[in-house]
């Protein structure tokens, strides 16, 4: 690692200015658990590190009146794990946050970092994607928002313009009788996901699915939403036949590769299994909720 300067701005505006001044050799640091590793082999070397943890707004978890949530980009996995509203309404996100590394890592690692590292195996990303999260982005031209799916363009690659900063991830409020689930497969307890899946489903009073979504991790260049799943499931009962369809659709949507961690065939099969289990978990939770998310 080469020498670099360290900056700790107090506001987003300061952070953007430091980044603009530093150019391509400047990097934002949220938790650093990915960045510090990347800096050891960064080419060109990182010359300026802009630490976002001092920006109070980025460390906030804000719950809106309708129950929706804005997660500041520098919110840690540990903070997500112990947040009462998230535990009650977004338990799949809590499970995904709790799956990241060990406790010391989770005290550093942030949701913004997890999303912006753009790893297809990022633990929180499938849940955020399945929940329909939006990215809040600050840049020279002011603030803009876009669906999370449009943030990623490939492994480690974002659609952000140079110098732009993800400031928050916005979770929409959940309709009544909505549940979410998260499942991941690893080689040992503490491991990068071989396959992960998140599912969200909403039931009507007759236990028929009115809305459903599923997202897969580690089976494509980016975290991947299973296209057409909501339409395919609409009106179905949350039963074994429906779950089998989820499994089939997820396995068909997966575009995994062979590598030393697992074969493509195994990953594809497991994408189906994880998606089915995540959806079963989501349906169970939807049934267990009495009313809305608030």
């Amino acid at each position: 690692m080469d020498d670099f300067t360290y900056h700790a701005p107090a506001t987003v505006a300061e952070a953007l200015a430091l980044r603009a001044e530093g150019g391509g050799a400047a990097r934002y640091l949220a938790g650093g658990s990915d960045l510090l590793l990347a800096m050891q082999r960064a080419e060109p070397p990182v010359a300026r590190v802009i630490d976002l943890k001092g920006i109070a707004a980025l460390r906030e978890i804000r719950v809106a009146a309708d129950g929706g949530v804005a997660l500041g980009a520098a919110v840690t996995m540990a903070a997500i794990e112990r947040h009462a509203h998230l535990l009650a309404h977004y338990p799949a996100l809590v499970a995904a946050a709790a799956a990241v590394g060990g406790p010391p890592i989770r005290n550093r690692a942030t949701v913004g970092g997890n999303v912006c590292n753009a790893s297809p195996a990022a633990d929180t990303s499938p849940v955020l994607l399945a929940l329909g999260a939006r990215a809040v982005i600050a840049g020279g031209g002011g603030e803009r928002e876009l669906p999370l799916a449009e943030l990623w363009s490939g492994p480690g690659r974002l659609t952000l313009l140079d110098g732009e900063l993800l400031t928050a991830v916005r979770l929409p409020a959940l309709p009544p009788r909505t549940g979410c689930g998260f499942q991941r497969l690893t080689r040992a307890a503490m491991d990068i996901a071989l396959v992960s899946a998140a599912a969200v489903c909403t039931l009507d009073r007759g236990d028929r699915i009115t809305a459903a979504a599923c997202a897969l991790g580690a089976v494509a260049p980016t975290v991947l939403a299973v296209a057409g799943l909501g339409a395919a499931l609409a009106g179905s009962r949350a039963d074994a036949g429906t779950l089998a369809r989820v499994e089939h659709l997820a396995a068909a949507a997966a575009r995994p590769i062979d590598d030393h961690r697992a074969s493509a065939a195994y990953r594809r099969e497991m994408a189906g299994v994880m998606a089915r289990r995540a959806m079963a978990e989501a349906c169970d939770r939807a049934r267990a909720t009495s009313g809305g998310a608030a």
């Binding site: 080689r187 040992a188 307890a189 503490m190 491991d191």
Partner: peptide, 14 residues
């Protein structure tokens, strides 16, 4: 897999 990211040893959790 010349590193602990991909050379998996059991942790206390395993």
């Amino acid at each position: 897999n010349a590193g602990f990211l991909d050379y998996k040893i059991p942790s206390a959790l395993d």
